[in-house]
Amino acid sequence: MAKDIFNTPSEELTLAQKGYKILKAFGEGSYAKVYLSEFQDKGEKTRVLACKIIDTSKAPKDFVKKFLPRELDILIRVNHPHIIHVHSVFQRKSKYFIFMRFAENGDVLEFILKKGSVSEAQARVWFRQLSLALQYLHNMDIAHRDLKCENCLITNNFNLKLADFGFARFVSDNNGKLLLSSTYCGSLSYAPPEILKGAPYLPKNGDIWSLGIILYVMLNKAMPFDDNHIKKLYEQQVSKRWNFRSKVVDSLTPQVKEFLPHLLEPKISNRYSIDDCLSSLWLSMDPRFATLTAAEEQALQASKEGRKAIDAARPTESKGDNVLILKPTDHHHRESLP
């Protein structure tokens, strides 16, 4: 057992019997830690995974009763080439072990802090991949509600994967009626003005604003607004007081300069939808984006069936050794190189 992991010998043994080994910690969230781990099944090659461990005994009741069930419910059902693939989920007493694909190049924020702002061409690739993942979710009436650079993971082939569904939720009821959100979710820097205002909001529209913040950060290695004071932040947002940094503005195309304001649009009725983003002139500048990969097309078609598609795909639960195993269909998508 690694010295920074506080699993019991019994938990370690149970995981080992399933082929899993926890190695070392490399990340931490509000109520969870993320560990490097390994999986080996019946003589197959060892696979490196990430494991998110949530100890519900140390988390607030609101999180355990409301947010965690939503996260698990959505995680084990979604399947998209640009959403981090969940390998399996185990529950043992108060702990949940979520094993997922390991992103070798960290997250977008880490990448930008180390290497600086990315080229517009690279930002276009990552933005498209993120937008396709969001389109998939929105088609099924799921809002992410915590889009930020830290939740955009980068694989060994420099493809982007959307992760962390801790605040995700369905935005309609079983009858298709839209549900307004009244819970403040996500990070202040990425929150749209309607959330800062404190009124019930449409979470899909909020996702688009956050998408715009991510694109701005990719291109500028900075945030568009000063978030040190909420009232001033709100005033800056509604008055559209932001600019591209002088360091990069002359190198950017007119198309991206025209596109980004549609995302950072304070008036919800004028803000782009995810379909508007994907059909934008800026994305169409790259001829490779004229067609979807087979995996992207398959996911899009599945999402068009809406919420029924993932309700039907709900995995079966099997209990044994005091471990709840929720294992989704293991689709392996071929990486699409930028």
Rank of each mutant, 00 (worst) to 15 (best):
G29D: 10
H332S: 15
K308T: 14
Q91A: 02
R245T: 10
F167P: 14
I230L: 11
G27W: 02
L188F: 05
H331R: 12
G43T: 02
N270R: 08
V256S: 00
S210R: 15
A290H: 06
H144K: 06
A143S: 12
N159W: 10
E265P: 15
V125R: 09
E305F: 13
V249T: 14
D227A: 13
D62A: 12
V89I: 15
V171I: 15
N151H: 15
I112G: 00
G176H: 13
S269K: 10
P224Q: 05
F67K: 15
R288A: 09
R145Q: 14
F289H: 15
A50L: 07
E296W: 00
D62N: 09
K24R: 12
K304A: 01
R101G: 13
T291S: 08
T291N: 12
R145M: 15
Q301Y: 11
K95T: 06
Y190R: 01
N220C: 14
E305T: 10
Q129P: 09
K42H: 08
G186C: 01
N139L: 08
T8C: 03
N175C: 04
L278Y: 12
K18M: 08
L130V: 05
N220I: 01
L75T: 08
S269G: 02
P81K: 07
I53E: 12
R47F: 02
A295D: 07
N174F: 03
